[in-house]
């Protein structure tokens, strides 16, 4: 009997992330070629240098970073990659900057499906394209099984601040109107209701979106009338309003009847005993606007899908500095506080 000679070669076509994918060798190269480069390419990244060399337009530069560890990685209305692009774009845009370039750093857990990674990378490329930004540099590390939860992504971003625009959470003026761009709580409840352990199903989808297009149009129209802008992410609209009130040492009064919550989001919040004002959003905008320009701002916002439901929710007052107070539908008043930490479902 003859035995056929067997040639032992390393396996290069894996279905899942291996430690070797992060070791800088041939598998790292294959990961780049197979998963990243087909989707993300531009003159800066294609050079495969250790850094992107950028010529920035004149003006003040805005620079931000954020790390995304959302679980589940795929959620109704988006995934961690889309979130990582839109979140950093929004952080630049609410500072009055035109977002230009992003970096993307990936921490991958050994065993993570490469097909899922590719889906995430693809949606990052699409989100960057929609937002008009380029991912110009990146990095990938692999950690052992159990050392991270599937995938973590860090994105940093650079943008150029428009001339004459000065947005800061310290800029609120008594008499300003507070505008909210739409419904609250969509992203946080989409995440919470898609986690394991909840026995009800919902149709809630994340509002994850880049706001820079709408913000650009608002600032084109009334660059000086906008005093502050924030995207109310973690801690929800309540946390954002509190940060604005504290930073500017002013009071904010809001009206309960003006706060929009989608029926499904409201239902889930009711079941879990959570205040929608404390729930994260990923495609919403809170602004303090000079009262005489507020209608112009609303008119601009309502030409965008993201601002269709924009509404004045309250105003800046000189009473109770540092505090946000809501007039309830019954005519009573209550403090809108910062949430303490993680939102905890009640016992009964």
């Amino acid at each position: 009997m003859t035995i056929a000679p067997v040639c032992f070669t390393p396996i290069l076509q894996h279905e899942t992330v291996q430690m070797a994918h992060g070791a800088g060798g041939r598998l790292s190269q294959s990961l780049m070629q197979r998963v990243f480069m087909p989707h993300i390419h531009n003159p800066f990244l294609d050079l495969l240098d250790d850094q992107a060399k950028l010529d920035l337009p004149s003006g003040r530069t805005a620079f931000t970073t954020d790390t995304y560890v959302v679980s589940p990685v795929f959620f109704p209305g988006g995934n961690i990659g889309e979130l990582a692009v839109n979140g950093t774009v929004n952080d630049l845009a609410v500072g009055g900057a035109k977002p230009l370039y992003l970096s993307a750093g990936f921490v991958l857990e050994e065993g993570f499906l490469l097909a899922e990674l590719e889906t995430i990378v693809k949606s990052m490329a699409e989100a960057a394209c929609r937002a008009g930004v380029m991912i110009v540099t990146g990095d990938t590390k692999v950690v052992g099984k159990g050392q991270c939860d599937r995938i973590f992504i860090n994105t940093s971003g650079i943008g150029i601040i428009r001339e004459g625009v000065n947005l800061s959470c310290r800029n609120l003026k008594v008499g300003d109107s507070i505008i909210l761009s739409g419904t609250v709580g969509d992203h946080g409840m989409a995440i919470m209701t898609s986690r394991e352990g909840l026995s009800f199903q919902s149709r809630i989808t994340s509002d994850c979106a880049a706001l820079n297009g709408m913000i650009g149009s608002i600032l084109d129209e009334v660059p000086l009338a906008i005093h502050a802008m924030r995207d109310p992410t973690r801690g929800g609209v309540a946390a954002t309003l509190n940060e604005l009130a504290v930073s500017s040492s002013v009071g904010i009064e809001i009206n309960e009847t003006t706060i929009l919550v989608k029926p499904d989001v409201r239902g889930a919040c009711e079941l879990l005993g959570i205040d929608p004002l404390h729930v994260a959003n990923e495609g919403k905008l809170v602004m303090a606007v000079a009262a005489d320009k507020v209608q112009t701002v609303l008119d601009v916002m309502r030409t965008f899908d993201l601002g269709r439901d924009a509404v004045i929710i309250g105003s800046v007052v000189d009473d109770h500095p540092g505090m946000v107070v809501m007039r309830t539908v019954y005519g009573s008043r209550r403090i809108i506080d910062l949430p303490l930490g993680e939102q905890l479902p009640r016992i009964c």
Partner: peptide, 23 residues
């Protein structure tokens, strides 16, 4: 307290809060 019902009642109605909080 959240809805401010205590603020809306006549002063002669006093609500006191009971022990029914399991935590």
């Amino acid at each position: 307290i959240r809805n401010g019902i205590d603020q809306l009642l006549p002063e002669s109605i006093e609500l006191v809060h009971g022990p029914g909080c399991p935590v």
